[in-house]
Design a binder for these strands. Structure first.
Lengths: 193, 193
DNA sequence: CGCCGAGTTGAACTGAATCAAGAAACGTGG
DNA sequence: CCACGTTTCTTGATTCAGTTCAACTCGGCG
């Protein structure tokens, strides 16, 4: 159950066996079947989720009913609506399983308690945030500078593991394109090879 | 000199007078005149900068020579190329003063030493990162869902303090628009009022 | 006084969206 | 294991938001 989490932690900081065991007690395991929600828009986000297995996505829905994919997350990643999680306000995001998934949940209070109990866990969280922030900045930069085709190629090379596991229209939504446009772009690329 | 920084820290965590004084010793004060660079593309980013006074911007330049604004930052904000700063790799961003500015610089090693000397500084940094991450996520969401006009209005209401202090073409670049388009959008809005 | 960067306006163009229809792949229950 | 509905992907025709290119105005500063 905790393999992926421990691997993720030990890539960033050094914890003793006892500390790792202590960590375990703060998490709530949870299984999610494909299409089930971890969080629905209009609810308050009470969990920070670590993914042991599976794929999740976080998205918004606009007035016209179009979905806009804000984030993908697979094994070894964290996902949550951090704003709602930290402020306690109602969320504007939906978080849903794309595949059957296994999660480890951390409530707001459990997270704080864990950071107090295991100070290195706070460092681990800070380092995760740094990486997430850098990835976000790179995504912003990509949306500002790249054409639709460049964005797609950039995505496939950056996240080769995700492409095979999620429907193409979700990738389109992540890239800010319509499914039709992404389909045409893929055709263009295939014709050129 | 340290007023803004202390204010920023004390909004997030509680430090003793002695700890605040200790913090001071890790920073290097630096003044930057308008159009001077804190970091130029191709160099390695050695500083994490806190802005005591002024406005900076961080941007990339594409093959065609167009600038793409990745971030604005004013008094009380931090700015750096976190990726280059943390990894030691060469930066693809330029960071430049938009107005004459006063900064407090933290080197990679000074930052680590400060977090070890004052553990609450690490918490402060983590909380900053959380907020920055949330703001980024909201910006991504905005680029995915909003029209050019909505993005502009969103920006003016979210950062009213920035609009008056930076040239309009920089705002256009931040929003992923051409200066001409932003000019037309502003005209549209003014005609409707 | 003259120049230069910033902003505005117009006209033509284009990349991607929209609308519509059909084909392929999937999975669920009988 | 097949049949049927659903979801996913593709293709074509048309539209449109925003870009590009070019010319002009305005204000500030050396």
């Amino acid at each position: 159950m905790f393999e992926q989490l421990f691997k993720s932690i030990q890539e960033k900081v050094i914890l003793s066996e006892a500390e790792l065991e202590l960590c375990k007690t703060f998490f709530i395991p949870k299984k999610l079947r494909k299409k089930q929600f971890l969080l629905q828009e209009g609810n308050s986000s009470t969990y920070n989720a670590f993914i042991e297995k599976g794929v999740l996505r976080s998205y918004t829905v606009d007035e016209k009913g179009n979905e806009h994919l804000v984030q993908f997350a697979i094994e070894g990643w964290w996902i949550s609506d951090l704003y709602s999680f930290l402020s306690g306000t109602v969320s504007t995001y939906n978080i849903e399983a794309v595949e059957n998934s296994e999660l480890l949940l951390l409530t707001t209070t459990a997270r704080e308690a864990l950071m107090d109990a295991v100070p290195m866990f706070e460092r681990y969280q800070r380092m995760l945030l740094q990486n997430a922030y850098i990835a976000m900045q790179s995504r912003i930069s990509s949306t500002l500078t790249e054409t639709a085709e460049e964005k797609y190629i950039h995505f496939t090379t950056t996240y080769p593991g995700i492409i095979q596991r999620v429907p193409q229209h979700m990738v389109a939504s992540y890239l800010g394109l319509t499914p039709e446009t992404l389909s045409r772009i893929r055709k263009q690329i295939s014709l050129r090879i």
